[in-house]
Simulated assay, not measured.
Amino acid sequence: MNLTSVMENLTLATNHSDCFSVDSASRRRSFLFFYLAIIITAIPSNAFSLYVSWQHIRQKNELGVYLFNLALSDLTFTVGLSLWLDFLWRGVWAHGGYICVLSVYFLFTNFYTSDALLCCIALDRYLAVVHPLKYTSLRKVGTAAAVSVAIWVLVICFNASTITWEDSYQENNKIPVCFDTFLPMSENLARANVVRFFLGFIVPILLVVFSTWGICVAVKSNQATEEQERKRILRLLTVVLFCVLFCFGPIHIMMLLRTLVHCTDVVWFLYAYKFSIAISSLNCLADPFLYCFITRAGQANVNQLILFFQGKQRSKNKGVV
């Protein structure tokens, strides 16, 4: 072996090591507190959202089916975040490769079930406003349940075929790392990231924009629609568009860029990539906003909850006096 080959191998080994060791403890801790705040907020809000969406289902409202599955997806992901907190605190993954792959699996399952269900909500509102009498069979609880099951099955199968041990878990210098295994990227992961970008971001954006635009045109031309109802519909679609564009946009752009990044560039890329994942986790907080503050049943349940706690507070104050 000549000197040139030896230097090339040494460079590759050094770069490979840098890919796994560039993140500092201080930056990890900042993400730790961020995710801790999300867990504390998201678990009770999504648990309450399950109750609110169940009220929709009891009223034979197909929207409740999509909202219920959204809350279920968010709760599953949020509970799994506790493993990431431990990883960020220690700096090493202490739970083995199988749990690592499973946690990555939960992450991407939440991404794409939420993504698809948000599209279903937008399309459901589009049919309800633009074609209220034409596609009634598509706006039934049974149809919504079948669509939701299909989404779960398709997402689970897609993740099973694209998430691998090699791309999720590695031990560099006997230091186990989960999901920070950036480079060198396998061909399987590169193809999966391209598919995720188009199916998980571009297609949902087009569907939500199409639905929003169609509803805006229909609402403006329909003078019979009350002003308050118009605002409620537009608020709902604004939150849906925000979730898809802001929560899922950065992570999918970074996934696409990841296929082009070289190992020497990973120092700047690592933090940006982790930041995009942190932004995507905000969908666990944005989704409950759909149930509790925009839909009618959600607003009614929130008001009941507020009145309940106000009544308990008054009773407590009277007892003190």
Score class of each variant (00 low, 15 high):
P44N: 01
R58C: 13
I43L: 09
I40R: 14
S49M: 09
A42K: 04
V52E: 01
I43W: 03
F68C: 15
W54K: 15
V52T: 07
E62V: 15
L50K: 08
N61L: 12
R58G: 09
N46M: 01
H56K: 10
A71Q: 01
N61T: 03
L50N: 05
A71F: 02
I39Q: 09
L63T: 15
A42R: 03
A42E: 02
L63W: 14
S53Y: 01
V52G: 05
A71T: 01
F48V: 13
F48D: 07
N61C: 12
I43D: 01
L63A: 13
R58A: 09
V65G: 03
Q55S: 09
I57L: 07
K60F: 04
L70K: 00
I40D: 10
Q55W: 10
H56N: 10
Q55E: 13
G64I: 02
L50T: 01
I40W: 08
L50S: 13
Y51N: 11
N69I: 12
Q59A: 15
Q59F: 06
T41F: 07
F68L: 04
Q55L: 09
F68G: 07
G64V: 02
I43R: 04
I38G: 07
N46W: 02
I43E: 01
A71M: 06
I38R: 11
Y66T: 04
F48G: 03
R58Q: 05
N69H: 12
Y51W: 06
E62C: 15
W54A: 08
T41L: 15
F48S: 03
N69F: 06
A71C: 07
E62P: 15
W54Q: 15
A37E: 09
L50W: 02
I40N: 13
N46L: 01
F48R: 11
A47V: 12
N69G: 07
G64E: 02
G64T: 00
A37P: 08
Y35Q: 11
T41G: 07
S53W: 00
Q59W: 12
A42S: 08
T41P: 11
Y35H: 10
F68N: 04
S49G: 02
A37Y: 06
F68K: 14
S45H: 06
Y51K: 10
A71G: 08
H56S: 05
S49T: 11
G64C: 00
Y35M: 07
R58E: 06
Y66K: 07
L36S: 14
N61H: 09
W54L: 14
H56M: 03
I57N: 07
N46R: 03
L63K: 14
S49H: 13
N46I: 06
N69Q: 06
P44K: 08
Y66H: 11
I39S: 03
E62Y: 12
S45F: 05
V65E: 02
A47M: 12
L67T: 05
N46T: 00
A47W: 04
S53E: 09
Y66Q: 08
I38K: 05
V65Q: 03
